[in-house]
C-alpha cells in the first residue's frame, strides 16, 4: 500500500524554542508528495493521543523509482489511474511543526530510531502557478508554503506574518526562495508591526495605482531588488495568491482579494480523524456545498469558502 506505511524517525530537532523539525525515512515505494499535500502522522505509542494528526509536508528527498522499463506492473497501474502520481523507491520526509497540544507534544518526544505510522500524501496540494505569484504565510503556515516557494524559485512575492521575530520560522530559507519578502509581526520585533493581510492589501492597492513605492519591504531583505519599475508593479495586482495560515488571516485575505478578480488559493486547517475522506469531521462550508478539507482540500479557491 503506497499511502500507508511505517517509517523510521531519523531526526527530530528543535529549530528554536517554538518549532521542531521531524525527519522520517521509508525505504519502500511510496507516492512522491506535492507541495501543499499533507500526511497523517502517528504522535504516540499509546491510545492517548489516539488519532493521527495532519501535517503539511515541509520537504522531501525522494529518489525516483526505477526507469520506466523497470517499473513494476503495479506502479504502472497506479500511474494510469492518476497520471500525476509519481512513485519513489526511497523517501525522506520532513515536517516542520510547532508544539501546541497533546499531539504535537507527543510528536516532539519522538526520537531517531522510533517507528512512526504515516498515511499520505493526502489532499490536493497547490495548483501550479503559470508565472510569478504572491504567497501569504501566517506563522506555521510557512511549513506548507515553503516547499511550494522552493519548487518555483524566485517567482514568489512572499508576505510572511507572525507574532514575533522568533516565530518567523525559516525566514531566511523562505526569503532565499522568494523574489521579494515582506514581513510583519504582531509585536513589531521584525518587519512592520501589524497584520500581514494589511500589507498585502497595500501592495495590491499600490500596484493597481502603478506606484513604484513599496514601503513595506523589510530592511533585512530589501537588498534583493526593492525598487521595481511601475509597469511591473501594475502587473502585480493580477498575480495569483497562495495562502496558508490561521483562519482569521485567511478570512481577512478573502476580504482583501474580493472583487479584484484575482485567483487566490488558501490552504485550510480543520480537526481530522481519518484524513482519507471517511469521517466527515473536517468539512468546510463552501458556496457549492460541504467540502472535506482532507479530500477536496486542503487547498481551496478562497472565494469558494463561505466564511
Amino acid at each position: 500500500m503506497y499511502r500507508y506505511f511505517k517509517a523510521a524517525v531519523t531526526g527530530n530537532s528543535p529549530v528554536n524554542r517554538f518549532f521542531k523539525l521531524l525527519s522520517i525515512y521509508f525505504p519502500g515505494e511510496i507516492i512522491t508528495p506535492e507541495p501543499g499535500q499533507f500526511y497523517m502522522l502517528q504522535t504516540g505509542h499509546t491510545y492517548d493521543p489516539l488519532l493521527k494528526r495532519p501535517f503539511s509536508v515541509f520537504s522531501h528527498e525522494c529518489s525516483n523509482a526505477k526507469d520506466s522499463n523497470e517499473s513494476s506492473v503495479t506502479s504502472n497501474e497506479l500511474k494510469t489511474k492518476d497520471k500525476d502520481l509519481s512513485l519513489s523507491s526511497e523517501s525522506s520526509l520532513q515536517f516542520l511543526y510547532r508544539v501546541r497540544g497533546k499531539g504535537t507534544l507527543g510528536l516532539a518526544q519522538m526520537k531517531a530510531g522510533d517507528s512512526i505510522q504515516v498515511i499520505g500524501p493526502m489532499g490536493n496540494g497547490y495548483p501550479a502557478p503559470e508565472g510569478d505569484f504572491i504567497a501569504v504565510a501566517g506563522g506555521i503556515g510557512i511549513a506548507s508554503l515553503l516547499p511550494f516557494l522552493e519548487k518555483h524559485r524566485n517567482r514568489a512575492y512572499l508576505f510572511y506574518g507572525a507574532q514575533s521575530r522568533e516565530e518567523l520560522v525559516m525566514l531566511e530559507k523562505a526569503g532565499n526562495a522568494a523574489r521579494e519578502t515582506f514581513i510583519t509581526t504582531d509585536d513589531g520585533s521584525e518587519g512592520r508591526k501589524g497584520l500581514i493581510t494589511d500589507v498585502v492589501k497595500e501592495f495590491l492597492n499600490n500596484s493597481e495605482k502603478g506606484s513604484d513605492k513599496l514601503s513595506v519591504i523589510s530592511d533585512k531583505l530589501k537588498d534583493k531588488d526593492s525598487s521595481l519599475d511601475s509597469s511591473l508593479i501594475t502587473h502585480h495586482s493580477s498575480l495569483p495568491l497562495y495562502a496558508c495560515g490561521p483562519a482569521p488571516m485567511l478570512k481577512a485575505l478573502a476580504e482583501v482579494v474580493k472583487g479584484r478578480g484575482v485567483k487566490c488559493y488558501a490552504s485550510l486547517e480543520e480537526h481530522m480523524a481519518c484524513g482519507v475522506g471517511a469521517c466527515l469531521g473536517c468539512v468546510v462550508k463552501t458556496h457549492s456545498g460541504q467540502k472535506r478539507v482532507c479530500k477536496e482540500g486542503p487547498v481551496f479557491d478562497i472565494g469558494e469558502i463561505a466564511w
Binding site: L50, E270, H271, M272, A273, G281, V283, Q290
Partner: peptide, 17 residues
C-alpha cells in the same frame, strides 16, 4: 448537510463526534 464544525474532538483514548 450535517452539523457545523467543530464536529470532532479527541478525548482520552477516544473521540467525540
Amino acid at each position: 448537510e450535517g452539523n457545523p464544525t467543530p464536529r470532532i474532538v479527541e478525548t482520552p483514548a477516544g473521540m467525540l463526534n
